[in-house]
Computed example of a mutant assay.
Amino acid sequence: MKHFAKGFLFGSVATLGAVAGAILSFKKKIVEPIEDQEQRFEDNRKKAARKSRSAHN
């Protein structure tokens, strides 16, 4: 019974580690590039609005 408990605990920790790694990998590969692209679009929109306002003054 003692070996089963150690194995079960080790398996649970390993599974949780794998899930956490998968989540972090997904965030790094998918979510962050989308957020960066959205930020660039927002910056470009702000620059265009400033240029437009200064050109009409």
Rank of each mutant, 00 (worst) to 15 (best):
F41L: 09
A5Q: 10
G21I: 01
V13S: 03
G17K: 07
K51D: 06
A49H: 04
L24S: 07
I34Q: 07
R50L: 15
D43R: 11
K51P: 00
R40A: 07
Q39W: 09
A22K: 01
A18W: 02
L16Y: 13
V19F: 10
T15R: 11
K28Q: 15
N57I: 08
K28P: 02
V13T: 07
N44L: 08
F10E: 11
R50D: 09
K47E: 11
A20F: 07
F8H: 06
K46F: 04
Q37V: 05
G7Y: 02
K2R: 13
A55W: 01
I30W: 11
K27A: 09
G17I: 04
F41Y: 11
K51E: 12
F26C: 04
K6R: 08
A14F: 10
M1V: 05
A22C: 04
S12H: 07
H3L: 12
V13G: 02
K47H: 10
A20G: 08
A20V: 09
K46L: 11
L9Y: 11
F26M: 01
M1R: 12
A48H: 05
K28A: 14
G11Q: 00
E35F: 03
R50S: 05
A49V: 07
A48S: 03
A49K: 06
G7A: 03
A14H: 01
E32K: 03
R45K: 15
R45I: 06
K46H: 06
N57R: 12
K47D: 02
K47P: 00
K46R: 12
K6A: 13
M1C: 08
A20L: 11
K29C: 03
Q37Y: 13
A48R: 02
D43S: 13
K29E: 06
F10V: 13
N57V: 14
D43A: 12
K51F: 11
E38L: 15
K27V: 10
A55E: 07
Q37C: 02
L16P: 01
H3F: 15
G7C: 08
F4I: 15
R50E: 11
G7L: 04
H3Q: 14
R53M: 05
I34E: 05
K46T: 06
G11Y: 04
K2F: 01
L9Q: 06
S54P: 00
Q39P: 00
